[in-house]
Design a protein around this nucleic acid. Structure first.
Lengths: 187, 187
DNA sequence: TTCGAACTGGACCAATTGGTCTATTGATGT
DNA sequence: ACATCAATAGACCAATTGGTCCAGTTCGAA
């Protein structure tokens, strides 16, 4: 039961709980019991909405979490005047979420989809979601008049920085690294 | 049974197997049965050498894997003439390991120690190991005449890039990103 | 050769795992 | 009022989990 989860339909509660739990404890680190208790749903509902069970739910949870991230990228770059500006805003927003919520301390996709059981399907899904993030940044970059190739480079660079920073921040329990990320782009 | 594991003492076989398995499948993704089969050791030996069981073994495995990485950093920077040079060599070595072995497709520390059970102890251990990597790069950076602070920055920057690149490379099943990492330092 | 500790082998355990199945409930259209 | 079907509730299951325990074995020092 994360936030005002009462009015949400069961399926959405399952997805949200799964996303939040997998994010910090990993796919295998979360048992169905924890999951169902957190979502306040019986086992029957899980297998009604996700016939293939835990793995299906993990896929859906990762997609949902990815969409959250896409929105974060969008709002960060929408009001930006330069790429640097957008990247800086994104990092600061991530750092704030890292500090305030207990769940933004790791990339939701990686924690959920790597180390999964049917590794190949999970990996492919993760790849697509990541490419979605990069494409989103890429599109925004183009608005600032950079070339196609430069935009792709910049987007991948930002992705790599964010992921690396996320990990180090988690290990140190400090969002400082994330805030210093933008400085690494210009250097 | 990874490589010529016959002459190795049981304890070392356990550590190596644990390091290799946890690296790709995560702490919770590896059961003791898999682990013991891979190390070709009985359960009694595990709890003799690691009285606290799986978690103790994971700590030892992470430390061992970290030492491997430290050596890789050392040989990369030892014969380098500039920081860029050392960083480039390191990335190319990592990319090669990524391609050749099946196990260098993720940071061994993160996969093993995050999402662990007694999260706090695991997290602290991971932090120390990571700081070891950064310190190693930092020391090499100083040899090239940069200031203390610049060296720390450069080391953390490289760390972040490597971690982020590692993740993207894993998702894409391609070491290309890792090889392009050095280009992101200069940009 | 004997003694004692380090180590091995594996039977055994309670708890938990992901998953199945069926009975029941709720709502919606007719 | 009825039929229909999506959704819920949870008992139940085999398999596996990490962990305990102890009888043997091995091996080096006395």
């Amino acid at each position: 039961m994360t936030t005002s989860s009462r009015p949400l339909p069961t399926k959405d509660r399952l997805i949200r709980s799964a996303a939040n739990l997998f994010r910090t404890r990993g796919y295998h680190g979360v048992g169905l019991n924890d999951l169902l208790a957190d979502a306040n749903a019986p086992k029957g509902s899980l297998y009604h909405h996700f016939p293939r069970g835990k793995s299906d739910l993990a896929l859906a949870a990762a997609t949902w979490a990815s969409d959250e991230m896409l929105r974060l990228i969008a709002v960060s770059f929408d009001n930006a005047t330069t790429f640097q500006d957008g990247a800086t805003t994104l990092c600061f927003k991530l750092a704030k979420l890292f500090d305030l919520t207990g769940k933004w301390d790791a990339c939701p996709i990686g924690s959920t989809l790597f180390e999964g059981p049917d590794n190949e399907g999970f990996r492919t899904h993760a790849m697509h979601l990541y490419d979605g993030w990069i494409a989103e940044v890429h599109d925004h970059a183009l608005r600032f008049g950079v070339s196609e190739k430069e935009g792709q480079c910049a987007a991948e660079h930002l992705f790599v920085l964010v992921q690396g920073g996320w990990l180090l921040a988690r290990a140190r329990r400090s969002s400082d690294v994330i805030r210093e990320l933008p400085g690494m782009i210009a250097d």
